[in-house]
Amino acid sequence: MKTDSIFYRIFQTDPGILFELLGQSPDRAQGYEFKSVEIKQVAFRIDGVFLPTPEASDLTIWFVEVQFQRDPAFYQRFFSEIYLYLNLHPETVDWQAVVIFPKRSIEPDYPHVFRANLNSDQVHRVYLEDLDESVDSLGVGLMQLIVADSGDTATQAQALLSRVQPQEQTNPRFAAIMELIETIVVYKFPQLSREEIESMLGLSELKQTKVYQEALDEGRQEEGQSLILRLLTRRIGDVAPELRSQIRALSLVQIEALGEALLDFKQPADLVNWLQDHRSE
């Protein structure tokens, strides 16, 4: 199963899940954006970084690594990437790191030289096999579904879906998580078609309802807004908070139009002008 892409989608959909794994409030994620960070000088990319937004009160950066294959040199690489990032970004106020292993046997025997890092309060190791099954959290449940045995996958997926009350199904977060549940099951049963999986999970009728379609569209709109903000940052630098607010108020059609237009942007003024021209649409 393509675990890296699955986890990336999970944290993109609901960043609060990371903090739930650490036993903290998911509300901590409200001031963060989850993204990959490219370090051009050495041509590599850190795939999981929670960067505080410009208006965030907590400026701690969170580095996240998902490690599902045993790699004896994992910690050498992981801490090298972190300290290289810190060297290139001296403005960093504070940092935390989270490593997610499916089970303890995957973690490499860490060298003595990393004892200060691994025994500090800055580095957190999560073992999915140790997660409490009684925790009533969709996010934690998604993590458990990823490492579930094939024989238990359908039952656990159905149990996750049943946790959501009918009145919550209009929430775009639910629609996005339901898509993730379905995607995880697709990866686990590659021999089945998506239609067969929808039938197995009892999703066919629900996905045809108007409330689900509206929730899914709203979720796609939020995802599109986040993507546009990341692309704009790469294109013209940091986007001012007042411009971010205007972007988050755009419709899905406007978001798609901005996605095409930003390819020609060369400076922040181009974004300001575009928003002014499309304000009344």
Score class of each variant (00 low, 15 high):
residue 69 Q to R: 15
residue 104 R to W: 01
residue 130 D to T: 11
residue 105 S to R: 14
residue 83 Y to V: 03
residue 78 F to T: 03
residue 154 A to H: 04
residue 155 T to G: 05
residue 110 Y to I: 14
residue 111 P to A: 15
residue 114 F to P: 00
residue 147 V to R: 11
residue 156 Q to N: 08
residue 93 V to Q: 12
residue 80 S to Q: 11
residue 68 F to H: 10
residue 140 V to F: 02
residue 105 S to G: 02
residue 77 R to C: 09
residue 91 E to N: 12
residue 89 H to E: 01
residue 138 L to R: 06
residue 76 Q to V: 07
residue 106 I to M: 08
residue 113 V to Q: 06
residue 149 D to Q: 09
residue 87 N to S: 13
residue 89 H to D: 00
residue 71 D to K: 13
residue 128 L to Q: 04
residue 147 V to T: 15
residue 75 Y to Q: 06
residue 72 P to Q: 11
residue 79 F to I: 05
residue 75 Y to L: 14
residue 116 A to D: 12
residue 82 I to Y: 02
residue 75 Y to A: 11
residue 112 H to W: 09
residue 108 P to V: 12
residue 112 H to L: 14
residue 109 D to Q: 14
residue 90 P to L: 09
residue 98 V to E: 05
residue 130 D to E: 12
residue 157 A to D: 01
residue 125 R to T: 10
residue 117 N to Q: 13
residue 104 R to E: 09
residue 158 Q to K: 15
residue 110 Y to C: 04
residue 106 I to F: 09
residue 76 Q to K: 13
residue 107 E to G: 00
residue 84 L to A: 10
residue 93 V to W: 05
residue 133 E to R: 10
residue 67 Q to A: 14
residue 64 V to Y: 01
residue 147 V to H: 02
residue 102 P to D: 01
residue 109 D to F: 06
residue 108 P to A: 11
residue 152 D to A: 13
residue 138 L to Y: 00
residue 123 V to L: 08
residue 74 F to T: 02
residue 141 G to Y: 04
residue 105 S to L: 06
residue 68 F to R: 08
residue 143 M to A: 11
residue 139 G to I: 08
residue 135 V to C: 04
residue 112 H to V: 06
residue 128 L to G: 01
residue 126 V to P: 01
residue 113 V to D: 08
residue 90 P to Q: 10
residue 116 A to R: 07
residue 91 E to R: 12
residue 74 F to R: 01
residue 85 Y to H: 14
residue 92 T to I: 07
residue 122 Q to S: 11
residue 70 R to D: 03
residue 128 L to V: 15
residue 72 P to W: 04
residue 97 A to D: 01
residue 136 D to L: 12
residue 108 P to I: 11
residue 119 N to K: 10
residue 145 L to R: 07
residue 76 Q to P: 00
residue 149 D to E: 14
residue 76 Q to M: 09
residue 85 Y to G: 05
residue 116 A to M: 04
residue 107 E to M: 15
residue 115 R to C: 03
residue 91 E to L: 06
residue 97 A to Q: 04
residue 92 T to R: 00
residue 88 L to H: 02
residue 103 K to Y: 05
residue 122 Q to N: 12
residue 66 V to M: 08
residue 72 P to Y: 07
residue 150 S to F: 05
residue 101 F to E: 00
residue 103 K to D: 08
residue 117 N to Y: 08
residue 137 S to K: 08
residue 142 L to S: 05
residue 90 P to E: 06
residue 137 S to G: 10
residue 153 T to R: 09
residue 147 V to Q: 02
residue 91 E to K: 14
residue 131 L to W: 10
residue 148 A to W: 02
residue 130 D to W: 04
residue 65 E to T: 06
residue 135 V to Y: 07
residue 129 E to H: 12
residue 69 Q to N: 10
residue 155 T to Q: 10
residue 83 Y to M: 12
residue 131 L to S: 12
residue 128 L to R: 00
